[in-house]
Amino acid sequence: MLILAVRRLIGVIVTLFLVSIMVFAIMELPPGDYAERYAFRKFSGTGVQVSESDIQSIRIDFGLDRPVYERYLDWIGGIVFEFDFGQAFAYETSVNNVIGDRVFLTLALLFVTLILTYLLAIPIAIYAAVRRHSIADYSLTVVSYLGLALPNFMLALILLYVGVTVFDLDIGGLFSEEYEDAPWSLGKVLDLLAHLVIPALVLAWSATALQLQTVRSTMLDELNKLSVTAARARGLSEWRLLLKYPARLAINPVVSTIGFDVNRIFSELPIVALVLGLPELGQLLVQSYLDLDMYVAGAILLMLTFFIVLMNFVSDLLLAVLDPRVRAREG
């Protein structure tokens, strides 16, 4: 178990290193740099002529003139050793200040979505598999296909409409007005959770639909296993043996795909956030690309990949905890 954890951890570190290089390369890709954009913003329409040497001096001011590898080392060194993601030029402050709150809110949304997905998908799928061919089973199948087919921004719009017209809910944003700029308190956390439910539901929708199908089919496989009959032949009560034997194995595929779910949620987040008016990272990422504010973009990309890699690591460890065969195979 320990060997497996250490081996996986080394894998995580190597992956993160390669990812950081890729992220930096992506940051370098767009033509032009922030010095040009800055000069354009500052002087366009003022009639001032900007020469190449003016831009060069801005570049030197921002430290953008140094060679690529130097800037990379500076950047990654700052992140690893000082947790400093660099300068957010367009906001004239540090990247940490710009993305700090949003990282936290994005993660809160991510975890609430994951938990909601699993709380919905696992018990419902197990029930559907046990009551196979029942009306409940068939209706769940229909709902889950709907879940796979319906684009989630559609769902977001529908929920917005229903929420506002029928329930008179305030579902835009992540906080009520009175908490928007208030310091953190229990009330604020509860307010945040209340606001997270709708976005989490929208984001969990397709993941739940997919996991429902996965868990249901694994559960059906497991139900026919001889080990289940053997447990039944030992006199265990039906629900006890269902939960102990097939259900335990039916959640394995869920655990092993946590990383995919994280990835999916991150990819769907920007458009859902746009519809629901949530301040999260995706929108900021797009904006920072438009501004060529590359350290902001780099920090966000790095954060997202970091969490995907991290959750994959967690999923590997969980799977090893759940399944002794995995432990045996990998030491």
Binding site: S227, K244, R248, L249, D323, R325
Partner: peptide, 8 residues
């Protein structure tokens, strides 16, 4: 082999 659950 199949009579036993592999995870217990």
């Amino acid at each position: 082999m199949a009579s036993f659950s592999p995870v217990y």
